[in-house]
């Protein structure tokens, strides 16, 4: 209801969940990390954002998380105008997003269950619902039997599954994955990508930032290619083409 009103106010098409209009971000004068980027991502899409190091992928993720504010242009996510959003409203906005990082960013002093339940406590989910939701989401990512394990006793792949479970437990509309398989071997990478696909099939919009060429080319999803801060390609069922291609 409120999201619809926000979207109408910001003149965003109803099926569009992320809109970036002529967005630039410069950390220092005259060297933009992102330069005049325009993107329209629809609800339920699976999108790869690819590019080499320094292409502006991380800046893009930080802008979508509202960790950074664009130097120019306008960003709207789920009807929230990120240029104008107040500091107090950022937590509420972020609760619509699930985030997965390359280095997992779990709380190492807590076990698997507590890491996932932590995300529910932040959104003030009642205790009885947490006790129901956390085992369910751990089962989805294949970690039902390891809920008591400490994070440091898990493999890299398992840690990334915990991170995925934490990102999903609040049923976000958008899942942002920043190099989610960067630290994993090819077998585990396939498993994680399969999980992301399953999550997308259940209606969540998935954005994966990566430079894993093989994975992108296998999945055949929409691919947005960034090079030196500029969108150079945006194609449905695309492939990852680097500068030599």
């Amino acid at each position: 209801m409120f999201a619809q009103k926000r979207r109408a106010r910001n003149k965003i098409p109803p099926d569009e969940i992320i809109t970036m209009e002529h967005v630039s971000k410069a950390y220092t004068k005259n060297i933009p990390a992102l330069n005049d980027v325009t993107l329209h991502i629809r609800r339920g899409e699976f999108v790869f954002i690819v590019g080499d190091s320094g292409s502006g992928k991380s800046t893009l993720i930080k802008l979508l998380l509202r960790e950074l504010v664009p130097t120019e242009g306008r960003i709207t996510v789920m009807g929230y105008d990120l240029n104008r959003i107040s500091h107090g409203k950022i937590p509420k906005f972020r609760r619509n997003l699930g985030i997965v990082f390359q280095d997992f960013r779990l709380l190492p002093d807590r076990n698997v269950y507590e890491n996932v339940a932590f995300a529910q406590r932040i959104v003030q989910t009642p205790g009885r619902d947490i006790r129901k939701n956390v085992p369910a989401v751990l089962a989805t990512v294949g970690l039902a039997g390891k809920y008591k394990n400490k994070i440091r006793h898990l493999s890299g792949g398992e840690q990334q599954r915990v991170a995925l479970a934490r990102a999903l437990v609040n049923k976000p509309a958008i899942l942002l994955a920043d190099e989610p398989t960067g630290n994993l071997d090819p077998g585990i990478t396939r498993e994680i990508m399969h999980l992301l696909e399953k999550i997308n099939e259940n209606g969540t919009t998935v954005l994966v930032v990566t430079h894993d060429k093989e994975m992108v080319n296998t999945m055949r999803k929409r691919v947005i290619t960034l090079r030196r801060g500029v969108v150079v390609e945006d194609e449905e069922e695309g492939v990852y083409r680097d500068e030599e291609d």
Partner: peptide
């Protein structure tokens, strides 16, 4: 600081 950053990314309020 890392723990605080994670909390903020997940959507924790300043109070939380």
């Amino acid at each position: 600081q890392e723990e605080i950053t994670i909390m903020k990314y997940i959507g924790a309020t300043d109070y939380f």
